[in-house]
Simulated scan of single mutants.
Amino acid sequence: MSAVMKNIADHGAASAEPAIAAEGKRRIRVGADARPAMRKSPLRPLLLGVLPPVLGIAFLALVWQIVSLKTTSFPSPLMTLEEAIRVFSDPFYQKGPNDQGIGWNILSSLKRVGMGFGLAALVGIPLGFMIGRFKFLAGMFNPIVSLLKPVSPLAWLPIGLLVFKAANPAAIWAIFICSIWPMIINTAVGVQRVPQDYMNVARVLNLSEWKIVTRILFPSVLPYMLTGVRLAIGTAWLVIVAAEMLTGGVGIGFWVWDEWNNLNVPHIIIAIVVIGVVGLLLEQALVALARAFTYEDVRN
């Protein structure tokens, strides 16, 4: 009798083990399914996207406030904000050739940058294609580029003043000479990195040089070329501010220097923020252009 009862007990324990194991696996599976559901909270992407920038700006404002408390001549964030509201309430006033609103100064700087940058693109991108395409031209121009590229753009400003006899074309010349090198170098590198198989196919098909450039080189080089354009526009915007400080006239750089002469520190801080915002917008516009014309992932 005891043997029979023992067999029944063993049979029950054996039949219960699969049920217990199945229940444990179900609970584990439910717990594993619940964790991703918790991670996919709709607020998480919003917090990760908004909270870090807000904290960064708050930290900057806190440091700014501490510095303003330690230095009486340095304006507080609230004082600068009030002055910025007043400045941007009428950004396009005109009271003389050297007394104009900040809007006119920004437009004047952008006009100079556009002219110098455009001329650099017209010269630098075709020259980069030729340097990358022909070894003879690469050997001819590479020493010139290597020699002149490290020269500070402002070192070219006296040459522009000497040649053009005026401040405005001299500033445009400085923009041109600092913008052309990234375009030449990146375009040439892009041409040199085109797979040789593409060129072999073009040779077999007996394609003309124009078709090689438009059908093979240009689509392959476009990401490199746009990278050079992005680097050039950032450098151009940096240089125009310094060039306008030296040459005078209407422009955001001259506005900063003029406000320093008037000891108007809040306006200097406003100009610094404006310069940063405009530079950021220019770069983001070119990033959007790069994403629209290439299949590659373009990052800052």
Rank of each mutant, 00 (worst) to 15 (best):
A61R: 01
V63S: 08
V63W: 06
V67S: 06
V67Y: 06
S68V: 08
L69P: 00
L69D: 11
T71F: 13
T71A: 09
S73H: 08
P75S: 11
P75C: 04
P75Y: 13
S76Q: 02
S76C: 08
M79Y: 09
T80Y: 00
I85S: 12
V87Q: 10
P91M: 11
Y93K: 00
Y93G: 02
G96A: 03
G96K: 10
P97F: 13
N105S: 11
I106V: 14
L107M: 15
S108H: 12
R112Q: 06
G118N: 12
L119V: 11
L122T: 07
V123N: 05
I125S: 04
I125L: 13
P126G: 09
L127D: 04
F129A: 03
R133G: 05
G139T: 02
I144M: 13
I144W: 13
V145F: 07
S146L: 14
K149N: 13
P150H: 04
L154M: 14
W156K: 05
G160L: 10
G160A: 02
F164M: 07
K165P: 08
A170K: 04
A174E: 00
A174F: 04
I177C: 08
I177N: 03
I177G: 01
I177D: 11
C178K: 00
I180A: 00
W181V: 04
W181A: 07
W181N: 01
I184P: 02
I185S: 04
I185C: 06
A188D: 07
V189I: 15
